[in-house]
Write a protein that binds this DNA or RNA. Structure first.
Ligand SMILES: Nc1ncnc2c1ncn2[C@@H]1O[C@H](COP(=O)(O)OP(=O)(O)OP(=O)(O)O)[C@@H](O)[C@H]1O
Length: 673
DNA sequence: ACCGGATCCCTTTTT
DNA sequence: GGGATCCGGT
């Protein structure tokens, strides 16, 4: 049998061998915290603890997936599949589905995405006859989110002081009413409802306390109040709670994360064991020295010294490029060069890290042209496409007939001669009924002209037919394709988009989406291949069960710094190192770049051996050119660990030079045609 | 009611 | 660069 304790240092061993009681592992990047969690799980199982009584929670899907893979390596996939490993949200959804009678929702409830949220919030504002203009929508959503993260229901928010809360709590109340009427919940509800369920039903809580006797949580510095409370309740009885994290890597403050959760963990659990790890096994000392600059000044932290036996290593390379295009071009070239120089570095050992998702686009284009295989983590660009969102809405409606939001989305795609006036009449026909129910009401149909009655009947009969089909599990792609064809969606694109290529593109995206359902189904037992399950994993972006092919595995990874947390790559390109991008303009405006600095620390510490940082002098922003200054962080890098390659003329793509000149001329009003 | 065009937002970061 | 939204013509 695999020796679980082999290859661990004494502190790691200590943590792994503790079986019962609260345990905190507080340590810097790359010191093997995640390794402690995975090996500790293995050790629990070796000590005859049932795998299904172990709960491993992570923050991001990517981290859950990574952990699953590591555990598979130690325990084998049979054993690994028995324990629950996933995000807080995935775990809570499992509970809410199981205990649905005790929640405000009905079976097959669906998760509201951000567009649903906005739509419902608009409805709430309209129903209250408030005249808040659209720009306030995001503000109110953030109020509501904040309340939910603190586990406050609308009732409790009414007690909040201030003019804004007076309005916000009324909107919150209405918003919640509509969500529930549509049998939906938003992301924050997932946590709030679970805590509420447990608090109101001690017998249910007790059931789960008995089930999950051993709890392990990675990246604990990122938990918010609701998550802390959730775990506190679950662990109350046995207190076998192991949390692991690094206060210097706290980068989710904007989402309500409370660092004190980890810092004060020993105060909350009196007999808590604390283990610190100081040896970094990941990076070279050059990389660590650079990283340290950005956290040593942080207030409110446990100071941790990191050291590594990995030698000084290569210098960090910084390169300034002219444009965002030449940045992507340079990196595509550099990847080839790196592979030439270091044959052991495969595509999968390389990552492109950026501050925000939209930066991936140019790299995708460039990599496609250069035949560099890549995969993007966590970007919604595909799933955010209108045609894909519409496809999802078509399906959500089958799973949850009360989902008016989805109905509204797709009723006019393709156009069915059923517009605003028609909707108004359906709404007034029965204010308290879901739209789809009204559509099926014979006496409502009788109020319509034949020109509307015919398309509406065709629409509802397809919906009803496929609702019945999907009630059985299995063959999701086949049924979906037939559904989309019959209801006129799959072949409506030629009609909607004049440009034939665009129409074909969009149609193909829908086909690709249908294929993704096939992939979802592939590694599921037939009973689990239900539409509801698919939609749920889609909403949670939970692709942790997806099996990747070799080609896919051996790809360059494109991802944000946030989603790279917890991961490591031998070669990292940190791109877009420009003022207002990283650090982000919002942080600069608020004169609070602490979290950006920690984010930068996280970015640097992803690299094992090679680290490149690039910045561009100009970049397309909102469709127009913007001139960019190098990031203030670059100036802080210790000189002895960096090497500036900018002077060595990097190969610059022809068209980028032309672009740069054109913009130069444009700037001075010279017409260079 | 539909279509096309103009206009106006946006853009952190994730579940 | 792209989506949602509004407006005016058909
Ligand atoms: N005792 C050890 N001996 C050799 N390698 C180790 C040891 N402990 C950890 N490592 C390696 O160090 C690397 C970093 O480990 P791990 O990802 O667990 O760190 P971490 O503390 O979770 O990092 P982060 O804070 O960045 O998430 C991994 O490649 C791991 O295999």
């Amino acid at each position: 049998m695999y020796n679980i304790l082999e290859g661990l240092n004494p502190s790691q061993k200590e943590a792994v061998e503790i079986i019962n009681g609260p345990l905190l592992v507080l340590a810097g990047a790359g010191t093997g915290k995640t390794k402690v969690i995975t090996h500790r799980i293995a050790n629990l199982i070796k000590n005859w603890i049932a795998p299904d009584s172990i709960l491993g929670l992570t923050f991001t899907n990517r981290a859950a997936r990574e952990m699953k893979e590591r555990i598979k390596l130690i325990l084998g996939s049979d054993c690994a599949s028995k324990l629950f490993l996933g995000t807080f949200h995935a775990f809570c959804m499992k509970i809410l589905r199981a205990e649905v009678e005790k929640t405000p929702l009905h079976r097959n409830f669906t998760i509201a995405d951000d567009q649903d949220q906005k739509g419902i919030l608009k409805l709430a504002i309209a129903e209250l006859k408030l005249k808040e203009d659209d720009t306030d929508i995001n503000l109110f959503l953030s109020y509501i989110g904040k309340a939910k993260q603190e586990l406050k229901f609308p009732e409790q928010c009414k007690a909040n002081q201030g003019y804004m809360w007076a309005i916000a709590s009324r909107i919150y109340e209405k918003y919640q009413e509509i969500l529930i009427a549509q049998n939906m919940l938003d992301f924050d509800d997932i946590l709030m409802y679970t805590v509420d369920l447990w608090q109101k039903n001690p017998e249910i809580l007790s059931k789960y306390q008995e089930k999950y006797k051993y709890i392990l949580i990675d990246e604990f510095q990122d938990t918010n109040y609701a998550q802390f409370k959730l775990i506190e309740l679950l662990a109350e009885k046995y207190k076998n709670l192991c949390v692991v994290g690094d206060d210097d890597q706290s980068i989710y403050g904007w989402r309500g994360a409370v660092v004190e959760n980890i810092l004060k963990f020993p105060n909350r659990y009196q007999n808590c064991r604390v283990v610190k790890l100081e040896q970094n096994y990941r990076s070279t000392n050059n990389i660590l020295e650079a990283a340290n600059v950005f956290i040593s000044g942080n207030k409110q932290r446990h100071s941790k010294k990191l050291w590594s036996e990995n030698g000084v290593g290569a210098k960090i390379k910084t390169i300034s490029l002219q444009t965002d295009k030449s940045e992507a071009f340079y990196i595509a070239n550099q990847i080839r060069k790196v592979q030439y120089e270091y044959p052991e570095i495969r595509f999968r050992d390389i990552a492109i890290l950026y501050r925000s998702n939209h930066q991936s686009r140019l790299f995708e284009e460039q990599f496609r042209m250069n035949k560099i295989p890549y995969r993007i983590v966590g970007s919604n660009s595909f799933y955010d496409r209108k045609e894909v969102r519409d496809a999802v809405a078509y399906l959500k409606l089958l799973s949850n007939p009360s989902d008016d939001q989805s109905l509204l989305r797709i009723l006019g795609v393709p156009s069915r001669n059923l517009g605003l006036k028609f909707l108004e009449s359906a709404r007034t026909f029965d204010k308290n009924s879901a739209l789809l129910k009204t559509f099926n009401n014979i006496s409502f149909l009788d109020t319509l002209s034949p020109k509307q009655k015919t398309p509406l009947s065709a629409f509802t009969s397809s919906i009803n037919k496929y609702t019945a089909f999907f009630a059985e599990s299995g063959d999701l792609p086949g049924k979906t394709r037939a559904y989309f064809e019959e209801i006129g969606y799959l072949n409506c694109f030629q009609k909607i988009y004049k440009n034939i290529d665009e129409a074909e593109d969009r149609r193909e995206n829908v086909i690709e989406f249908i294929n993704a359902m096939g992939q979802f189904e592939e590694n599921k037992v037939p009973e689990e291949a239900t539409l509801t399950n698919f939609l749920e994993s889609f909403s949670l972006s939970d692709d942790s069960d997806k099996v990747e092919g070799e080609e896919e595995k051996n790809s360059v990874t494109l991802l944000t710094v946030h989603s790279a947390k917890g991961l490591e790559f031998p070669c990292v390109f940190l791109v877009g190192m420009e003022q207002n991008l990283f650090p982000h303009s919002r942080a600069l405006e608020e004169r609070d770049t602490d979290e950006e600095r920690r984010l930068f620390y996280v970015a640097i510490t992803r690299a094992k051996k090679l680290l490149y940082m690039t910045n561009a002098g100009s970049r397309m922003k909102y469709g127009s050119q913007s001139y960019q200054m190098p990031s203030e962080f670059l100036a802080e890098l210790p000189e002895n660990v960096i090497e500036d390659l900018s002077a060595n003329k990097a190969p610059v793509e022809e068209s980028s030079i032309n672009d740069a000149f054109k913009n130069f001329y444009k700037q001075f009003g010279i017409n260079n045609k």
